[in-house]
Design a protein around this nucleic acid. Structure first.
Length: 289
DNA sequence: CTTTTCTCCTGTATGC
DNA sequence: TGCATACAGGAGAAAA
């Protein structure tokens, strides 16, 4: 599932294959893919045609293409989110349409195209104004991720400790720290030896720092491995899977012995999904999870 | 305001 | 075999 490392892998692929190119046309194959673009898909396509891609940026799990000032999109950005199953693929125009092809970028210089393919259509595209730092308006509420120059660890620690919620919930809240999803939240908590059900406010500053540092570290390692792919849903722009799933210590490891202490990893239902943790290394709080 | 729950979607796996 | 159900989960809307 695309969390920060997977989105960064895709960003790098786009930077390699789309940066500096002029969009000849953008074909949107379903209305839903542009649902966040209120003027509609026709408007989005017409504005983007003829724009030159001047930057490929990311904050947390959001990607955006910065457009040239002089072009038709004027200093706007094309904001992209992969949702759970979105893929951006570099493909020759002659390649057959993918089953869940939702958007196709064709370029003035010909091949290759960039295609947005998304089985579950939780992802999408939208055109957005940007602020003085180049951040799109619709994601102003998304906090900087740990790899962002604007990331302020001390501020993040304060924000986390001021929450009244469980630490895992807070880690998943993109307004506090962005980029962390279910997989890396579980891995960071396992590394830090903290149960996700602990109340965030009850954790000491050093423990919160340790959790944030663990999240940063595990995401950096995952990025170096090309991301985590459980199935064919997350791939890079060339269709290749990442291999960090082999290095996961908690997520998806139910019943397997903890690599630190040997206790079997447990799975519990959490927020309509799952949490994985080591019952010995991550002692459960008295409160319910 | 903060916090929690619900909803969007479809392919795969499991159960009867 | 076939049909029903559970599950995966990011993020925003809605509810509490």
């Amino acid at each position: 599932m695309p969390e920060l490392p997977e989105v960064e892998v895709v960003r790098r692929g786009l930077a390699e294959h789309a940066l500096g190119r002029t969009i000849a046309r953008l074909d949107l194959h379903c209305h839903r893919v542009a649902r966040r673009h209120l003027p509609g898909p026709g408007h989005l396509s017409s504005v983007v045609a003829g724009a030159r891609i001047e930057g490929v940026r990311r904050r947390g799990k959001y990607l955006w293409l910065a457009m040239d000032d002089a072009g038709p999109a004027g200093n706007q950005a094309l904001l992209l989110h992969l949702g759970m199953s979105g893929q951006l693929l570099v493909q020759p125009g002659a390649a057959p349409d993918e089953k869940h092809l939702h958007a196709r970028f064709s370029f003035a210089d010909g091949d290759p195209q960039i295609r947005f393919v998304d089985q579950r259509t939780f992802g999408g595209l939208a055109l957005a104004e940007v602020d003085e730092h180049g951040i799109p308006e619709p994601i102003q509420h998304i906090a900087p991720d740990p790899f962002d120059a604007a990331f302020d660890r001390a501020a993040a620690v304060r924000r986390i400790r001021s929450s009244r919620s469980d630490i895992k919930r807070v880690l998943l809240d993109q307004r506090v720290v962005s980029g962390i999803g279910n997989i890396y939240a579980d891995e960071a908590l396992w590394r830090a030896g903290v149960h996700g059900g602990r109340s965030a406010a009850s954790l000491s500053r050093p423990v919160v720092r340790r959790i944030l540092d663990a999240a940063t570290e595990v995401m950096a390692e995952a990025l170096a491995a090309g991301g985590t792919s459980f199935d064919a849903l997350y791939v890079n722009v060339n269709g290749a899977s990442g291999y960090f799933d082999r290095s996961l210590q908690a997520y998806g490891q139910e019943g397997r012995p903890c690599s630190r202490c040997g206790a079997p990893i447990r799975r519990v239902a959490f927020m309509n999904r799952s949490s994985f943790y080591c019952p010995k290394c991550q002692p459960k709080p008295r409160r319910r999870l």
